[in-house]
Structures are given as structure tokens and as C-alpha cells.
Design a protein around this nucleic acid. Structure first.
Length: 262
DNA sequence: AGTACCACCTGACGGC
DNA sequence: TGCCGTCAGGTGGTAC
């Protein structure tokens, strides 16, 4: 489940493996991964080029080819990037394969094909066109308050809406609400609650990055290690509630994430 | 502006 | 053993 921390790890992986090498060939193995670009266009755009740098915004990755051309990737639910040894076997789930002149290659694997590959003139143009909101880790408190305050919908779908804030997914949204002691069904939050929530989001994302986005290494005081049907709240031992909220499975503690009148 | 629902796709898992 | 239904997750579309 790639959310901001997992995608940031993918960005670092790209930066460590795939920059400054001439691309011998790009092969689209499954066109269903493409958005607004044909296999031919993409393959021709990449051949002979190099990636200069790897960028991330929310859950979206950008590989710079030149000032007006970027390869953009979204990992979807099951997307993975793998820098293959020379001669390594290619998985049946590889949807895009980029071979470099050093005989190594970059595979974009995505079993469920919820990911996306496209070309963009610039990250900014692409993000504007898709109406993607500010990156969760680049947002300051006042910006967060402006975005979140005065909306009427449930808080959890608000956190998941990438047009409002980019990077949180189902798991880290649950975690941030848990840490902040806010019910995912809450609607009107006080400035104080939103401020607490902002801190929790920053804290959760930074902690996840510090563990290299390995969920099993998160502190036991976090929700995620206990986020399963039999799980109990690490703070007060209550059985965790599991409900669909805004169409997404949500876990929360019925004790310390109660609805508050505000 | 919000919600509710559907679609995309497939591996994993529980039940019979 | 094996079939079958259900679920999971991110996003985008539609109808209300």
C-alpha cells in the first residue's frame, strides 16, 4: 500500500539506482498502465535519454528527462520498482521495463495494474492539471488549517482527498486520527483539534520515514501494528472498531477517539 | 460541496 | 482438492 512514506522510499531507490544512465530501450509490457500516452510515444520519448533526478509529490513520482519532459509514475496499490541485475529474469507482473546501456534495467511491476505511467511537461503542470493538493510534508500549519477548516464532510475522507492534501492513504490516515484522538467520523473540528491533527500527521509520516516505511517497525504505541479485526488499542486496551467510512475500511479506538461536540 | 456507488484488477483468504 | 465469494487498496467517474 504505497502512501507517502513508501513512495518516498521508492524515490530514494530511483535516485540511488537509475539516474545518469543512458536508456537503451523502454518497453511497455502492458498498455493498461499508460495514461494519455501511447506505448510508441513513451518508448520513443525515453530511448537514448537519461534521468537527471527523481522527485516526489504526494504519492506521485517524477523522473526528469529534460526541462520540458518528465516520466511520471504512480504506484497505485501494488506497484513496485526493481532495479534488475544484468540478465535477471523479468517478472510476469512487469508492466514497463527500461533497459540501460550498462545492461541493467528498471522494472515497474504492478500485479493489479492500478498504477499509472505517463509523460508530463513538468511536475507543476501535471499536478495542476490533476488538481493535486499540496504535499503533506511540505504543508505548514496555517495552510493545513485553511484547507481543512470549515468543510462539512467527514474528517477521514477529507484526509484521503488528494486534491486537498497529497500523500495520506487509508492506513496513515487512520494512524494520524488515532494519534490525535479524533474520531474518523468527526465533521466539525475545532482549530485546536485540527492543530493536533496536523502535528499527528507530521509525526506519523516522519516516524514512518525513519523506519524506512516498514510497518512492522513502527512503535507498538501506534495503531498500525494492531490494525486487524482482533486488535486492541495499545493505549487503553479497548477492542478496536472496524467500520466502512467513506467507503474505506477504518479502524479506530472507541475509547479515545469518541465524537466530541464542538 | 458532499456522498454513495461503481469500475479498474488480481492475489489472498475463509467457507464449504 | 477445489471452487466460490469477499476483501483489500488508490483514484476517477457518475448520478444524486
Amino acid at each position: 500500500m504505497p502512501e507517502l512514506p513508501e513512495v518516498e522510499m521508492a524515490r530514494r531507490y530511483l535516485a540511488a539506482t537509475s539516474l545518469h544512465q543512458t536508456i537503451r530501450k523502454a518497453e511497455v509490457k502492458d498498455e493498461r498502465i499508460l495514461a494519455k500516452v501511447s506505448a510508441k510515444e513513451l518508448e520513443e520519448a525515453l530511448a537514448g535519454k537519461q534521468f537527471d533526478c527523481a522527485m516526489r509529490h504526494g504519492k506521485r513520482l517524477f523522473l526528469k528527462i529534460n526541462e520540458t519532459l518528465y516520466l511520471t509514475l504512480h504506484l497505485g496499490l501494488t506497484g513496485r520498482l526493481i532495479y534488475l541485475e544484468s540478465g535477471a529474469e523479468v517478472s510476469s507482473h512487469t508492466r514497463l521495463l527500461i533497459s540501460f546501456e550498462n545492461d541493467r534495467s528498471l522494472a515497474f511491476d504492478d500485479p493489479r495494474i492500478f498504477g499509472e505511467v505517463s509523460l508530463a511537461k513538468s511536475p507543476q503542470a501535471f499536478l495542476t492539471e490533476r488538481k493535486v493538493g499540496p504535499d503533506a510534508l511540505q504543508l505548514a500549519l496555517d495552510g493545513f488549517l485553511k484547507i481543512m477548516n470549515g468543510r462539512r464532510g467527514l474528517i477521514k475522507p477529507r484526509l484521503l482527498n488528494q486534491r486537498l492534501i497529497a500523500g495520506l492513504g487509508n492506513l496513515y490516515a487512520d494512524e494520524a486520527l488515532f494519534q490525535a484522538g479524533i474520531c474518523p467520523r468527526a465533521r466539525s473540528l475545532t482549530i485546536g483539534q485540527l492543530t493536533t491533527l496536523f502535528s499527528s500527521i507530521q509525526e506519523v509520516l516522519k516516524t514512518a520515514l525513519a523506519t524506512h516505511a516498514e510497518l512492522e517497525k513502527l512503535p507498538d504505541s501506534y495503531l498500525l501494528p494492531h490494525r486487524h479485526p482482533k486488535g486492541r488499542c495499545p493505549r487503553d486496551g479497548a477492542n478496536l472498531s472496524r467500520e466502512k467510512i467513506g467507503g474505506r475500511t477504518s479502524y479506530y479506538c472507541p475509547e479515545h477517539q469518541k465524537m466530541k461536540k464542538s
